[in-house]
Design a protein around this nucleic acid. Structure first.
Lengths: 195, 195
DNA sequence: TTTATTACAGAATGATCGTTCTGTAAATGG
DNA sequence: CCATTTACAGAACGATCATTCTGTAATAAA
């Protein structure tokens, strides 16, 4: 009975996400979003309730799609190897997404805790990441690849900060970024020591 | 011969800096800046060449004033103690500057490498920080308080990322932030080991 | 006191912000 | 074929954006 929509919701969300990721929340005007998505102005308000609604969907889309593979590497591997693979991927993200950084980190810095719904989602995101890292650290500690003199969650929190920092550095194209192997060496069990 | 200005340049820059720090570059409109500084619209353009010029001055002002004490703690102390004092201060910044984070980190995330003058300044800022941290690490290694199996600059780069990450976490009021002592433990010489 | 110079206060500018509204096109059930 | 429903396209909205301009006030040298 009704006229069917001409847009594809997945495509719309993906291209809007890319714009927010590149230019930030404030930098992505509704007009730019319409041009990027091919969406109709009316449809944007009907489907997403305006710019902020669209942004929240995009943040979710980013976490579910862009960040997901990174998360999965952590979840599907064990111990130090999981952490190594994760950081290698984060470090090499620059190849394809130069000067974009991470949408979650960018948003945290840009919006702070102004939009409570957004900052709650960001908090949950980093909490989840800390949990996965903590789990991998504990696994590594059990088999003796990771030093056991520090609480796994404490190590994980440090690692979360490092990911955040690496993202920020990528965002402004810093030529200086930490090497993954030295980062791992910080948390690894020293070779001559068997717990 | 000319009419003297009514504003105090130091006060103007300080209050503009605070607004940029709180609300970001995009979030700080010229009108808000005028209200915050008490400056005249004409004077803003005469003295700073517009919003972007004012911002660059504010970034410098932030680095020279807000970040300076932190930098000095690093420069005026030695080894692990310098690093400990630095991170303790960074971690406790939240007390007075809750949800503000660090203007440099916020700017990096918000503007990326769009404004080349700005991103160059940010790069120089973090380079300087990495240099000071590297120096402190090397000192600590010499006297055996910091592990010597990793290059001091590599350790310093990791520490820079941690500062960036802590700033981002403060910005969105993350209740989860890494503990300074566990962070230090990562780089410290293990107790039973004398290099 | 006159004159040159500059700051001040705010109106005016055109562009763009996010949002709403109006009229038309497209689809299906009756 | 008609009626109903919803998407589409874009005009229109008031608000605000950064910037420029105009007229007036203030200062100090001549």
């Amino acid at each position: 009975m009704p006229r069917p929509v001409q847009y594809n919701l997945e495509n719309v969300t993906a291209s809007a996400t890319r714009l927010f990721w590149l230019e930030g929340y404030g930098g992505s005007s509704v007009d730019k979003l319409l041009r990027a998505t091919g969406l109709n102005k009316h449809s944007l308000y009907k489907a997403f309730n305006g710019k902020e609604g669209l942004f929240i969907r995009c943040l979710e889309h980013y976490i579910d799609n862009e960040a997901r593979p990174y998360r999965d590497v952590l979840a599907n591997n064990h111990g130090l190897g999981a952490i190594r693979s994760y950081f290698q991927r984060v470090t090499r993200r620059t190849r394809h997404h130069s000067n974009m950084g991470c949408l979650v980190a960018n948003t945290a810095a840009e919006l702070g805790d102004g939009h409570s719904q957004v900052s709650k989602r960001i908090d949950a995101y980093y909490r989840d990441l800390a949990g996965l890292l903590s789990r991998a650290v504990a696994q590594g500690q059990d088999i003796g690849e990771i030093r056991s003199d520090i609480d796994p969650l404490d190590i994980a929190k440090c690692l979360v900060h490092m990911v955040q920092g690496i993202s920020i550095s990528h965002r402004f194209r810093s030529p200086v970024a930490a090497d993954t192997e030295s980062l791992l060496q910080l948390i690894a069990q020293p070779p001559g020591k068997n717990q």
